Computed example of a mutant assay.
Amino acid sequence: MADYTIQPGEWGIHGVTLTAATVTTIRFPDDVDEIEVLSHDGAAAIYFTVDGSTPAVEGRGSRVIPAAISSAQVEPPTAGPTIVKLISAGTPRISVMRTS
């Protein structure tokens, strides 16, 4: 499991390659209003959560970015630190960033 922290004043983390079937956690110690998850290469679908819960590949409680070069912008439903968790069946390259 990979774990990254994005400090206040930093925009995000870029070019992270997910490990197949392994959860990657991105922590923002501050309360982020909106985050963007970007798939750089569309190598595989990306499943993610923004409330600290654990995502699953094709999980009903997970958001999804299809296997395409694309992104999703989401407002986390929680107050306090923002925790983004991602998983994939493949090894897509991603970025996770605050949008404002």
Rank of each mutant, 00 (worst) to 15 (best):
R93L: 10
S62G: 06
T82M: 05
S95W: 03
A68V: 05
P76C: 10
S70K: 00
V84P: 01
D41G: 12
D33S: 15
A68L: 09
R93P: 00
T82H: 05
V96E: 02
A67G: 03
R60H: 04
G59H: 07
R63M: 09
I69M: 10
P77C: 05
V64M: 14
T82N: 04
A45S: 15
D41C: 10
D33C: 06
V37Q: 03
I65S: 00
V96I: 11
A44H: 10
E34D: 13
E36L: 11
F48W: 07
S70C: 07
I65K: 00
G80M: 01
T49E: 04
E34T: 14
D41Y: 12
A45G: 09
G61H: 10
A68Q: 11
E36W: 07
G52E: 07
D33Q: 13
I87R: 01
D51C: 08
S71Q: 06
P77I: 08
G42T: 12
V64D: 01
F48H: 08
E75S: 15
T82K: 04
A79M: 04
I69S: 04
I87M: 04
A45H: 08
S88A: 10
A89P: 04
I94K: 00
A43P: 04
G52Y: 05
V74R: 02
E75T: 15
H40F: 15
P66Y: 07
A43G: 11
S88F: 04
V74E: 09
I83E: 12
V37H: 07
F48E: 02
V96T: 06
G42N: 08
K85P: 03
I87C: 07
V84D: 01
R63Y: 13
E34C: 12
G80H: 02
S53E: 12
I35D: 02
V37N: 06
T54H: 03
K85E: 04
P55N: 12
T78P: 00
T49N: 07
G59C: 09
G90R: 06
S95L: 05
H40K: 14
V84F: 06
Q73R: 15
L38S: 13
R60C: 01
S71E: 01
S62F: 00
